[in-house]
Design a protein around this nucleic acid. Sequence first.
RNA 1: GGGCGUAUGGCGCAGCGGUAGCGCGCUUCGUUCACACCGAAGAGGUCACUGGUUCGAUCCCAGUUACGCCCACCA
Length: 852
Amino acid sequence: MTEQRLIAPDRPALEGLETVWSQVWEQEKTYAFRRPQSRESVFSIDTPPPTVSGSLHVGHVFSYTHTDIIARYKRMRGFDVFYPMGWDDNGLPTERRVQNYYGVRCDATLPYDPDFSPPENPDPKKQVPISRGNFIDLCEELTAIDEKVFEDLWRHLGLSVDWSQLYTTISGMAIRVSQAAFLRNLARGEAYLDYAPTMWDVTYSTAVAQAEIEDRDYPGFYHRVSFHAADGSPVYIETTRPELLVSVCALIAHPNDERYQPLFGSTVTDPLFGIEIPVLAHHMAEMDKGTGIAMCCTFGDKTDVQWWRELQLPTHTVIGRDGRLNRETPDWVVNTHRYAELAGKTTFSAREAVVAMLRESGDLDGDPKPTMRKASFYERGDKPLEIVASNQWYFRNGGKDEDLRKVLLARGEELRWVPKYMEHRFSDWVNGLNGDWLISRQRFFGVPFPVWYVLDMEGNPDYCQIITAEESALPVDPMTQPPAGYDESQRDQPGGFTADKDVMDTWATSSLTPQLACGWFRDEELFSLTFPMDMAPQAHDIIRTWLFSRVVRANFENGCLPWATTALSGFVTDPDRKKMSKSKGNVVVPTEILEKYGSDAVRWRAAMARPGTDSPFDEQQMKVGRRLATKILNASKLVLNLPGNDPGSWSVDKVINPADRSMLEELHGVIRFATQSLDEYEYTDALEVTERFFWTFCDDYIEFVKERAYGQEGVELAQMESARCALGIALGVMLRLFAPYCPFVTEEVWRWWHSDSIHLAPWPQAGHELADAETEVLEDVSTALIAIRGAKSAAKTSMKTPIESMVIRGNADTLRRLKSVESDLRAVSHLTGDITWTEATGDLQVEVTLAT
RNA sequence: GGGCGUAUGGCGCAGCGGUAGCGCGCUUCGUUCACACCGAAGAGGUCACUGGUUCGAUCCCAGUUACGCCCACCA
């Protein structure tokens, strides 16, 4: 008895493949970027850097898988794929996580404590104040922990990232690049400092940008309040923010409003503070809203800002950066004793106090009426935003400049969008911008602005005299380093300098990910090989933020688009098609399903979500991917473990049987379609066609040729070889077609008879050597098999039940084709008697008589 | 209020001018020598609604409704 040498293991399994192969890929540097001679052979990807302070959910897993599929495909097509990963660990999200995790808060007035260690039992309600330096230390400590968890997950998922290209948005390199780009923007006038009303979050005590604002329902009350005209008669207004009465600067009605026309040009007095203000006309006032006349404050909402600007009203700011009313009585207040009761109160308490005063003075008409209004919130905050005038840094983004807006809209048109219709989100956003991009944040953990200001002889900063850092000195921290030409002793001294204490918003740095990843300002060779990049994958929700901001920065710095194509992923929604969000509590964590079904199965499910399309989470679907992976394992085992089968001997030239040739030619069609689909980023179509073929291959073709492939008695050697070669060649092709989707199981099987990774193997080509093969053979065989199985199933009997006789009706071509594979047909159907061949018009019909 | 998208069997999705397909689930049967993470067969839909174009519409056009996402409004 000869020893049967097995190529495949006896009992192949999916468990543990992620661990085994991710380690091998790391050791073999399978995905390392190798710098080629020219840009043409590179495919570079601007991977979204995940916010490490958050958690990854299935939506991320799907979206990053979509990118990885394309990366793997391009690599197999022979491109040098530049696929870096970044961590967005800079900014307010990290600060917030550090505050909650360690139970601390940053107090910039405290000195650095080198012996500091965080509280052992953090109490989020009693945060310990610590210095800026200690706070930044903790930010760095925690992001390192979080990043390890993220990296492990990505490796487990099988992302073919080149980990040696990893960058983070708070690293010295990122700060240097970010500062350098900022200084160049400043020099060209694309960045500027301005004193203006901005949206302000009182919890985090920082300005926020338009892109980070979201509207939420917010309960409030309409208060009907009387102002007093010169003749003592009341003028009623309605307001939801009575606490802003003290910052009133005008009453405004529509110019056509006959009720108020007599008052235009006169002044009225507020009911509490003795402030005399004008009554003015403006077309933005709506006659049917409230009483038709509005109280304009600095600032209650964006309309107030517009009125203030267009009517050149005085600035009566009372709300401070901490969200409390100023402690000092404003100079425009006449009845100072009233203000004294409000000083230092939060807006909420001030509102109660003002309402009580109004009741007492008799100027509150009726009871406040409840209403549900929309208020603006910072997307990560939970208190409504205030509008505060302050000094802030801006990037021009076309929000105030028609020419620039047109340039950026043209960039949007130049970009290839997958799917195409997503382009609207870009143009809608650009067209809707109403101001420049505010980038400064009054926070700590971020990229510092590399500037200082000259102090005058009284020690006040002159914001017109900005001292910038030298590019060669970057990265720089102006809080600890003096500018060139100054001495540290001159810091904050009259006639000296003072640092800009703000940091850049995290988007200001992440808007430079193409420059960061590609080596701008640091590695000219790398930059020329990878930039502009080929692909910008991301989810569709951040078109207005990340995608747009990168277009802005590359337009300024490089005069081009940062990439040629953007590929948008949809969301994984909850089963009710609602967006997943922490506040709704419907977030699905990926670790469990990855553990339960395996990475290949989850990736398969991700690939079934077409570009841009949201898809509801359904755990059932994961099983289908799992089943595919298992089937790949088992079908491969069958082919490779045929007794004496030798992969080295497989050759298309030996494929002589019509059924075998038919199957291979059909597969060539699959290759063509899958290749074309992937070139168009339609990974789902490519997978579907491959998968459909694979199941037919398993259910029909393998069953049909099995006896011949085993070399049963009476089978000619050449016929057996034909089946084995066809099976082996098809397997090799299908594994490679599946490799971008299911990298683990395909690698496992491939290595049963290859020493190199499948992920560096060439993508299959559809040759012409089988062009004369008839693909109809396999179709006819499938039809015949369905009839044979149908008869056995109807008779409720085993598929192995012998068939006594068979009648086949079809046209001459069909009969000829089936006759050419008659021996296989007899074997698969366990036919004992004869086949009656009857020429007839119409579709192929097969009648069988079962043995009794 | 504006924009974009989606509406196809219980669920998830294809399709697209010539009277519907796939997967899951379901029903019935079979099987353990690739695979029970299995195989086979089957039931199940007037393709949201109303008009229009056409010889003919699920598919094109217009409108309606519902849902989702984004933006705007916020006195």
